[in-house]
Simulated assay, not measured.
Amino acid sequence: MQDVRDFAALAANEPALEVGAGTGKATFDFARCGVPVTCVEPDVRMARVLGRRCAQLPGGGVTIEVADFETWRPRRRYGLLYCAQAWHWVDPAVRWDRARCALVPGGAIALFWNHWFLQCGELADRLTAAHARHGVEVPPDTLLDPRPRPARRGPEARQWRDMTAAGFVEPDHRLYLSAHERSPSALIDLVNSYGGYRALPAGPRERVLNEMAHLVAEHGGRAQVKVVTSLFLGRTPPTAAG
């Protein structure tokens, strides 16, 4: 993401640190731009997928470390720490201290989330009704959650308040809008990526996902979705010792 790179103003070949890299959706955006990335990913299976995908990148600019960020010890400090869709999984009791310790004085932190919404209200209603038929509540903060997301913005947002309370300066909150089209299988892949769905019992989850795919197919085989990307930026004080 160009705005993150501009905010961080990394020197040539200065590496960035990614927390919770998963299978590398955000990793590739940085690595393809020539930024060396150290990825900390606690899930061994995801790290293996990430490693296979990164092997396709020229230059070997991605280093993968399988570890929990809460206990991982960096061998150096970084000019940028970023986290896509995963910061809320890191223990709030230690995550900000760990971030400060991993960053150089004046180093940037970038935390971002995608919030997905169905453009068609009729399709959203049909998919929501499918949940009710299978005795499944729509998990919060997911595609069909009717509540506004992000719920708070700027200084009113929890991420902003937590960041500044932890000593980060120059806070900023930026929103980006985009639109996508999803096939039935692609929409189910998106739904499956939510922790709230993965936590459901396997039987009801599979039944509701199968019906959702069927309903999207009936709808013309495509679901139009809107994405609001919420980006929080900050940095350690220039004289911080960590």
Rank of each mutant, 00 (worst) to 15 (best):
F168I: 10
Q119R: 12
R198D: 01
P184M: 05
T142M: 04
P201T: 10
A132N: 01
S193D: 06
H180G: 02
Y197N: 08
S193W: 03
A102P: 07
G135R: 03
F117D: 09
H131S: 06
V94L: 11
P92F: 03
R76E: 14
E70K: 04
T164H: 05
N114H: 13
C101K: 12
W116N: 00
F117R: 15
R76I: 05
L175M: 12
R76F: 04
P155S: 11
L200G: 11
G107V: 10
E137K: 12
A130H: 12
G196T: 09
A151I: 04
A99V: 14
R133Y: 04
G107E: 11
R182N: 00
Y82R: 03
D162F: 09
N114Y: 11
I109L: 15
A86R: 12
L144R: 08
R98T: 07
C120V: 03
L187N: 00
R149K: 15
W116H: 13
E122L: 13
S185T: 13
L81T: 12
R153Q: 11
P139H: 06
D162E: 15
G154H: 02
R126L: 15
R158P: 00
Y197M: 06
W113P: 00
A124K: 13
H88L: 10
V169Q: 09
I188W: 00
S178D: 13
A202L: 13
W160Y: 05
A108N: 03
W72R: 07
G167M: 10
P146V: 12
P139N: 08
T128E: 08
L80S: 06
D141C: 08
G121F: 00
R100D: 01
L127M: 15
A102G: 10
F69D: 01
L111R: 01
Y176C: 02
L190Y: 03
L175Q: 12
D162W: 11
W89S: 01
W89I: 07
R153E: 08
M163Y: 01
P155F: 06
Y82P: 07
A165D: 13
R149Y: 07
R158Y: 00
L177S: 12
Y194Q: 03
P105S: 12
A130F: 13
D141V: 14
A151E: 14
A132H: 07
F112H: 15
P105K: 12
P171Y: 06
H88D: 07
R100E: 03
S193G: 09
R77D: 02
R75K: 12
G79I: 07
L118W: 10
H115S: 04
R126W: 11
R174N: 04
A102D: 06
R73C: 05
R174W: 00
L200C: 07
D145R: 05
A179F: 08
L80V: 06
D189K: 02
